[in-house]
Design a protein around this nucleic acid. Structure first.
Lengths: 90, 90
DNA sequence: ATGATAGGCAAGTAGTTACTTGCATGTCAA
DNA sequence: TTGACATGCAAGTAACTACTTGCCTATCAT
């Protein structure tokens, strides 16, 4: 199991989460083009793919295969209470 | 201004925040000994000092000088809403 | 003043991380 | 089956990060 904080440490990965929060169930190519268009990112497909691996290992995204496509969705679970250890809220 | 997520990416820094959440207003030496005692950490003074610099740059701790002492306290402000961009809660 | 204490500065090192590069696998449409 | 498309794998590189090491400054008690 990957480290959620380490996964969030990279700005590109946070932008990927932004994009997936806006639109679920995107393929790698979809993500790449939308990251270029909307977020002014110009990473290669392989770079994005590796970021997705890190995010998946941290449990921050979930994956669904269908034929040659692989759809990625955000999983907000790990985000819910990661900072609660330092906060005094219920 | 430092990156809050990057500051949180290191386990030692998170432990430092744990310790400061438990007891505010600690000097560097106090922190070092308590990290050894309570958290099984054995980092050097310089290592801890550099971690404190990162945490301060990220706004996660605040500092108060008094003579030759420097007191460190946790600042929970930056922690409050860092994940809200991906969550749909009020 | 002198020594002890608390902390600061900075260069160097080992390990990690993001990214690239090139090729391979798997799926589908024609 | 063939070619195009979507993704996977893996070795290499450049930059970064945590940590060390050695010395320096500042404050205080005696």
């Amino acid at each position: 199991m990957g480290d959620v904080f380490k996964a969030l440490a990279d700005p590109t990965r946070r932008t990927i989460l932004d994009e997936l929060a806006d639109r679920d169930d995107q393929t790698l190519f979809e993500l790449c083009s939308r990251l270029v268009m909307k977020h002014q990112l110009d990473s290669t497909r392989q770079a994005i793919s590796q970021h997705l691996d890190v995010l998946e290992a941290a449990g921050l995204i979930e994956v669904r295969r269908e034929g040659r496509y692989k759809f990625h969705s955000i999983n907000r679970g790990p985000l819910e209470h990661i900072v609660d250890r330092w906060l005094d809220r219920p």
